[in-house]
Design a protein around this nucleic acid. Structure first.
Length: 970
RNA sequence: GCCCCCGUAGCCCAACCGGCAGAGGCAGCCCACUUAAAAUGGGUUCAGUGCGGGUUCGAAUCCCGCCGGGGGCACCA
């Protein structure tokens, strides 16, 4: 049987041919090459350079081997549409895509398949490249790279050496003079130590220190340093992890393995030095509020005071003080006891050998003396994991330490407790407990019969048996020479801090939740550190001219992993097995000549490569610098105007113009990257203060899952839908199945791939469908059977230009009738605004509308369909190029100027005016668009239908919004 | 427990600064083409905006309180 499909119909097959042909042509012509003002690719004469510039970027993918589904390219298509649109405005547009190819996912896939990570990673990247090409991405291929390329990670290592060889000078003026604090080369700190301008913390003389001692001093300042501290050890992954990679319930973000605290010597990055700038600069960014909030919460800056509670008697004689941090210094009058963390060192000094006279029996754990009780409590606490401690959060437990401190304001003696609801890692590890204004302290006070004093007047409806944490006037807060009574919280805080500072009992203090970034991993597949260790145990950076330090071949690249529950295991770096690589003779050029060193065997986390890749996109062929300064300034330097919604007085921080990616990187990649960028800024390598000026989180495409009566998923593509009186039902192979909504995944049997869609409909149809499903940020369900609507649109557009039977172009060169002309200009105007604002879904709706209008004409005028082809080009670029060519153009339309709307044709001369009586529509009038209010009011009141509605009632008021509306109030 | 986002037709989504609830698509129904079906084309039905209050001449839109869905944080002193 012969198919009765017209020979020249725009079918998936024809689309496939057209698409492949145009992809070849774009590639051979370098259509998407953008122009650089300087550096190896300088093209200073390119006219686009002076015509505006935009950098559009996607979060680059991991070539993990799991395979793409239709959700993955959503953001890529959106940025491609935007970039293609911008090119038609004459702008110089940079849009490319590389690969985040180091790291766990790539390594795990390699381990699973028993191959070297480089082999599988490169194979997967090839698949990705082919798929991206097939989707018609206008990426600039020559700017693409992978983080595993030695030419790339050479610079990742170089940045590490810069960070390592820097320190944060909190008192130096900011680089732009607009604040205090910046990173400086470590050599300047050494000079200060040598000259004596700055004292060494423990008071020794620099000249008298050994190399190892000097190194130890400098490690206290370097922005990258080795520290022995409790870290997150994940036996299941065989590596340590940063705080950001551990979930709230104490498991690894990747793989969901248990994580344990182990004391280990690891590389850290001093991100905490930038905490303030990382918080403050958020308001200069055009980012989703949600992401800003997540970063603010993660950094967790809180303002308060440290207050010393003392004297506490020491067992060995004399007294000591206990410092607490509080955000509520205004409530000190209500501090009736203290609690220190079980790990607090002061406990070693103050716990006496006998319970004080009259100790409440509930305070003692039933132990005969405080030492036994505190020791037992500390042991029990140390056995609890963070997870268990959190799980027990409801019950406040603790034990009396047997000692008393003095409330520095009231002079009252107050008991000191040990309690695990106080964390050693936050503030000072000790708190003043104010049960009246703190729920946790209230719980503790109730459990241990401790006094409660309210120092803020609760609201009248506040329950008697609860802490009051709200705002109100201070009460019970007076002593001789100080009264907070009647003051609001903010004012009371200020007054209190001033009082404390005047007496030396406390001082203003800011604390942060953010901790330094644990930067080393015990994995093979990552960047080696550009660090060698000498025989004294002193670290040295590898000189720039010896970079990159290439990743060696090892007999076994898989990490040593352990039983996920084996908390006692220790990490082993796979690189340590490359003994010939580890032992190395080098002349570091420091005057010490050829010496033997041991290479650092940890590798960097995969965040390292993604921390700065946007900078390399700018100038990927540059061998002399990570990016030419002029190129950086041109593409992502600060713009004259601040971003939308920035507070008054804010300046633009620079950065990538548009960055699109998933929200899952809110506090990982996006925080690390901002940190590195600010270091590079301080050191003068970049002119921008932020990496990403504008961020959009694309939504996910989800899918329906169908399950049979056993609960097993059945292939979603084979499910039939039945509309019935009792609602819609679903069957698979004749048996009833249930529908639920969720993620797309192999095990759920609902995966749809871009390749399938290209096969069945063509890439352009797929692009149009994904873009018309809804706003970019929105989560939405995939529905394959709806894709045909997008295909029909493109087929109708095709048919408006080409005869399906003969393949001939059928457009006519006639003048547009008034209606078509108006529709065209309205569409151009709307589509331009929509594409500009990334509202591609509504842009497509407007194009469909115009196309449907053209379909109804006897013959399609060229003057109408050519602009439509241009407008559709960003979304369906292959089809548009093909039609453009068939319409007689020889050049690609990638740079053809976007159609302009004539403002004169956008105004209607006659509009429909709605006449309401008491807000209800009673009549419609056709009136001139420029009708004046008085005339319109007269016309409305004269309407018989309006008069009938008014029914003789007196008119109280008439609201006129010429020319659209009149509302008569009776 | 606290914070953020979202609820419009059977489904996905529009609706600009508060001003006629509907741009577009899917599905359904009718018609044309076809021996027939598919494909294609043309036409058409469908909601008063999750619920309850309030502000306003006028509310999908602003405010308050619920309900439902999604997400973030959670002894942070």
């Amino acid at each position: 049987m012969s198919e009765r499909i017209p020979q020249h119909r725009y079918t998936a097959e024809l689309a496939g041919q057209i698409e492949a042909a145009w992809q070849d042509r774009w590639e051979s012509e370098g259509t998407f090459h953008s122009a650089n003002p300087a550096g190896p690719w300088a093209e200073p004469d390119d006219p686009r350079l002076t015509n505006g510039h935009t950098m559009v970027m996607d979060m680059f993918p991991y070539p993990s081997g799991a395979g793409l589904h239709v959700g993955h390219p959503l953001g890529f298509i959106a940025t491609d549409v935007y970039a293609r649109y911008l090119r038609t405005t004459g702008a110089n547009v940079l849009h490319t895509m590389g690969f985040d190819a180091f790291g766990l996912p790539a390594e795990q896939y390699a381990v699973q398949t028993g191959q070297h990570p480089r082999v599988t990673t490169e194979a997967n990247m090839e698949i990705y490249r082919r798929q991206l090409r097939r989707l018609g991405m206008g990426h600039e291929r020559r700017r693409s790279f992978a983080t595993i390329d030695p030419d790339y990670y050479r610079w990742t290592q170089w940045i590490f050496t810069q960070i390592y060889n820097s320190w944060y000078d909190v008192s130096a003026p900011a680089r732009l003079g607009d604040g205090i604090g910046r990173a400086r080369p470590i050599s300047e700190l050494v000079a200060q130590f040598e000259s004596g301008e700055r004292a060494i913390p423990d008071g020794r003389a620099w000249a008298g220190l050994s190399p190892a001692e000097r190194a130890a001093v400098l490690d206290g300042y370097r922005l990258a340093y080795v520290s022995a501290a409790p870290v997150n050890w994940c036996p299941g992954l065989g590596t340590v992890l940063s705080n950001e990679e551990v979930t709230a319930d104490g498991r690894s973000e990747r793989g969901n393995f248990p994580v344990f605290k182990r004391n280990l010597s690891q590389w850290m990055m001093r991100i905490t030095a930038y905490a303030d700038r990382l918080v403050d600069d958020l308001e200069r960014l055009d980012w989703p509020e949600k992401v800003k909030l997540m970063q603010r919460n993660w950094i967790g800056r809180s303002h308060g005071a440290t207050v010393t509670f003392g004297p506490v008697e020491r067992v060995e004689g004399g007294t000591t003080g206990i410092d607490v941090f509080t955000t509520r210094p205004d409530t000190i009058f209500g501090a009736t006891f203290m609690v220190v963390a079980p790990e607090h060192p002061v406990l070693d000094e103050i716990v006496p050998s006998a319970w004080p006279e009259g100790t409440d029996p509930t305070w003692t754990l039933g132990e005969p003396d405080p030492r036994t009780a505190v020791a037992a409590y500390r042991t029990a606490a140390s056995r609890k994991s963070d997870v268990e401690r959190q799980a027990d959060a409801k019950d406040k437990t603790g034990v009396f330490a047997g000692a008393f401190a003095t409330n520095p304001v009231t002079g009252t003696k107050i008991p000191v407790f040990v309690g695990d609801y106080v964390l050693m890692g936050y503030g000072t590890g000790a708190i003043m407990a104010v049960p009246g204004q703190d729920e946790r302290d209230w719980d503790f006070a109730t459990a241990y019969h401790l006094p409660i004093i309210r120092t803020v007047q609760p609201t009248p409806d506040h329950p008697e048996d609860k802490a009051f944490t709200g705002e109100g006037p201070a009460i019970n807060s007076s002593i001789e020479g100080l009264s907070l009574d009647g003051l609001g919280v903010a004012e009371a805080k200020e007054r209190m801090i001033e009082w404390l500072e005047a007496r030396g009992a406390g001082s203003r203090r800011i604390t942060y939740r953010l901790r330094d970034w644990l930067f080393s991993r015990q994995r093979y597949w990552g960047e080696p550190f550009p660090i060698v260790w000498d025989e004294d145990g002193v670290a040295h950076t590898v000189p720039d001219d010896m970079l990159p330090v290439e990743l060696p071949e090892v007999p076994d690249y898989s990490p040593r992993t352990f039983d996920p529950e084996d908390a006692g295991s220790s990490p082993e770096a796979p690189l340590a097995r490359a003994t010939e690589w580890v032992e190395v003779e080098l002349d570091l050029g420091d005057g010490r000549g050829l010496r033997t060193y041991r290479r650092e065997t940890n590798t960097m986390p995969n965040w390292a490569g993604s921390c700065w890749y946007y900078l390399r996109y700018l100038d990927p062929a540059n061998d002399d610098a990570l990016v030419d300064p002029a190129v950086e300034r041109y593409w992502i330097g600060p713009r004259p105007a601040p971003v939308a919604d920035a507070p008054a007085g804010a300046t633009d921080p620079g950065g990538v113009d548009l960055y699109v990616g998933g929200v899952e990187h809110a506090v990982l990649h996006l925080l690390y990257s901002r940190f590195w960028h600010k270091v590079l800024f301080d050191l003068g390598y970049v002119s921008s203060e932020e990496p990403f000026r504008r961020l959009i989180n694309q939504g996910m495409i989800e899918a329906y899952v169908y399950r049979d009566d056993r609960g097993f998923p059945v292939p979603a593509a084979e499910v039939e839908e039945h509309a019935g009186p009792g609602g819609t039902t679903y069957t698979w192979n004749g048996q009833a199945v249930t529908q639920e909504y969720g993620k797309m995944g192999k095990s759920l049997k609902n995966v749809v791939t871009p390749d399938e869609m290209c096969e069945q409909y063509g890439a352009d149809t797929f692009r149009v469908y994904e873009m018309s499903m809804g706003p970019l940020e929105q989560y939405r369900p995939w529905e394959t059977r709806a894709v045909v609507g997008s295909q029909r649109f493109l087929q109708r557009l095709w048919r408006n230009v080409v005869d399906e039977e003969t393949g001939e172009v059928t457009v006519v060169d006639v003048e547009l009738d008034a209606e078509t002309d108006k529709a065209l200009h309205r569409t151009v105007d709307g589509v331009r605004a929509d594409l500009e604002a990334l509202r591609t879904n509504t842009a497509i709706a407007k194009m469909i509308e115009l196309n449907n209008h053209l379909t109804k004409l006897d013959a399609v005028p060229r003057a109408a369909v050519e602009p439509l082809v241009q407008m559709v080009a960003p979304v369906a670029p292959h089809l548009a190029e093909e039609l453009w060519q068939r319409l007689g153009h020889t050049e690609s339309l990638a740079y053809a100027p976007f159609p302009e709307a004539d403002p004169a044709k956008l105004v209607e001369d006659v509009v429909t005016c709605v006449v309401q009586v008491k807000g209800k529509v009673r009549d419609r009038l056709e009136v001139p668009a420029d009708v004046d209010e008085a005339t319109l009011e007269g016309l409305a009141l004269a309407s018989p239908r309006v008069q009938a509605s008014i029914d003789g009632a007196p008119v109280r008021k008439v609201i006129v919004r010429a020319p659209n509306l009149v509302n008569i109030v009776v």
